[in-house]
Every structure is written in structure tokens, then in C-alpha cells.
């Protein structure tokens, strides 16, 4: 049964242009389409009519790259928990429904066009400390460095972050705490991440503030929006690493820029 939908889409010609919602009718939507496929069809119709298609970000379309990300009916990545926009199917909506589609809204994520935002602030947070410093060369033997099972699991859970920015989008404060905490935790749980562990938290938090993200007030909206179900527990861990660094990290390590 094809569905008929009304789309209220945010259209904005460029970073400095004023944006507004515009309504489009989408008839003949298959419930088995993904949300992005539905937008593709709408865009083909717009193009055929000589209108400018709706710009939106996407890449892998299988929930692993983090490029897609839309505010759908007030929820980041739409109504399904643990699902990216590209993995969301139209059967999650009702026939005849009006769907509001907006870009992530945050000072740190300027709108480039329509539904595309610039998320390079997240990249700069990673550049500030989301790395380990090792000698390059041959890969070390797989079992040379024992990692306790629970630490490996916790690191993997945090490393599931695809950097889509849904946590920022869903947070009433537009805070990047869950993203930053996930990046701090996935290295900090592993032995290779220990040498720079506390410096990492200091530098990444400092960068997060510089990028004009808000702060964490533990609303919990981020973990609900996260397509990878990363827990707000990571934020407590980031804060603890940050505090430990503030209290005990020698001054020269706090100041040193880049790799140690």
C-alpha cells in the first residue's frame, strides 16, 4: 500500500541565508523505502519540475558512517531507537502523516544548505586528543598486550560512536558531551590509551568548549537519540578523567600541544 505524506522541510539557500519551512507532497511512498530513498524520490520530482532539490547528507546508507542525520518530527534520526536516518523505514510513519524535517541546530553546526550542517567541530575535538602516540612499524603481536574482557567491551561500546552529531542535536543545551566522552572512553579503556589518558580528557574538553557547544546538564536526551546507544555513563568517566588530569597531570603535559 503506497503512502501519502506531507513533508515540512527546512529550506535554506546557504549559510547566511534565512531559512524557512516549505511543504511538499510525497505521494506513492512505499513503506519499504528508507527515509533517504523517500527524499531521493521527492528530489527527482523536484528536479523534473525544475526546482532545486533538497540538500541532505548521506554516504554509506547502512548506519556506519555517521553522515546522515536529520531532525525528524522533533527526534534526532526519527522515531526509531538505535537507528540512523538511513536505516529508518517509511513503515515507521502513518499514511497521511505530516513529517517535519530539519537540520541539526547548534551554533557549532552551521547550516551549509537545507538539511546539511558543517560538523567539522567534532573533527577538531578528535584532533585535540582523540589519538594515541605509538611508533609506527610492524603490527605488534595480537596477544602481546592483554586487555581485560570488560575493558575491551566497554571500549568497543564507546567506539561504536559514528560521530553523527545526534547527541548534540537532541541535547537541549546542544552539548557535545556524549560524543566527546565516547571518544575519551574508547581510548581510555585500553592499555594503549593510558599514557595520554588524562591529557586527552583535558584537551578534548577544552576544544569542546572552544567550539561553542553547550554543557551537560544530564537531561539524558543524548543517549536516547544515539543510534549506537552510547550511555551517559561515559560522560561521568570523561569528567573523572578531566578532574584527575586537572589535579594530577604535570603542568608541562597540560600545555604540550599535539602528540606526546
Amino acid at each position: 500500500m503506497p503512502m501519502k505524506l506531507t513533508l515540512r522541510v527546512w529550506r535554506q539557500a546557504g549559510p547566511n541565508a534565512d531559512g524557512a519551512f516549505r511543504e511538499y507532497q510525497a505521494n506513492d511512498v512505499s513503506p519499504d523505502m528508507s527515509f533517504l530513498e523517500m527524499l531521493d524520490v521527492v528530489n527527482e520530482q523536484l528536479t523534473a519540475k525544475g526546482e532545486v532539490p533538497i540538500a541532505f547528507d548521506h554516504d554509506c546508507r547502512e548506519g556506519i558512517c555517521g553522515m546522515c542525520g536529520l531532525m525528524i518530527n522533533g527526534s534526532a534520526h526519527g522515531p526509531m531507537p538505535a537507528t540512523t536516518t538511513c536505516q529508518l523505514h517509511m513503515r515507521s510513519f502513518a499514511d497521511g502523516e505530516t513529517i517535519t524535517i530539519e537540520p541539526w541546530r547548534a551554533t557549532a553546526f552551521p547550516v551549509l544548505r537545507d538539511l546539511c550542517v558543517d560538523r567539522s567541530a567534532l573533527d577538531r575535538i578528535v584532533q585535540a586528543g582523540g589519538f594515541i602516540s605509538v611508533q609506527t612499524g610492524n603490527a605488534p603481536d595480537g596477544n602481546a598486550l592483554p586487555v581485560p574482557k570488560q575493558d575491551a567491551d566497554a571500549a568497543m561500546d564507546a567506539a561504536a560512536c559514528i560521530g553523527c552529531g545526534a547527541c548534540v542535536a537532541a541535547c537541549p543545551n546542544a552539548s557535545a558531551s556524549l560524543f566527546t566522552a565516547a571518544k575519551v572512553a574508547h581510548l581510555g579503556f585500553l592499555p594503549q590509551g593510558q599514557p595520554e589518558r588524562y591529557r586527552r580528557a583535558l584537551k578534548m574538553v577544552a576544544q569542546m568548549d572552544l567550539e561553542h557547544f553547550g554543557g551537560c546538564t544530564l537531561f539524558g536526551e543524548c543517549q536516547e537519540a544515539c543510534p549506537k546507544e552510547i550511555s551517559i555513563d561515559t560522560i561521568g568517566r570523561m569528567n573523572k578523567d578531566y578532574l584527575t588530569g586537572m589535579l594530577f597531570e604535570p603542568a608541562e603535559n597540560q600545555k604540550a600541544a599535539g602528540a606526546g
Binding site: 522533533g74 551554533t107 537541549p172 546542544a174 561553542h212 553547550g214 537531561f219 536526551e221
Partner: peptide, 14 residues
């Protein structure tokens, strides 16, 4: 950090 409000925003857990 969030100067322009969403047209529609749901609260899930707060």
C-alpha cells in the same frame, strides 16, 4: 549554543 529553536522538538527522557 542553540540560538535558533527547532520547529518541532520532542523530549524523550528529560
Amino acid at each position: 549554543a542553540r540560538p535558533s529553536a527547532y520547529g518541532r522538538k520532542e523530549h524523550h527522557t528529560s
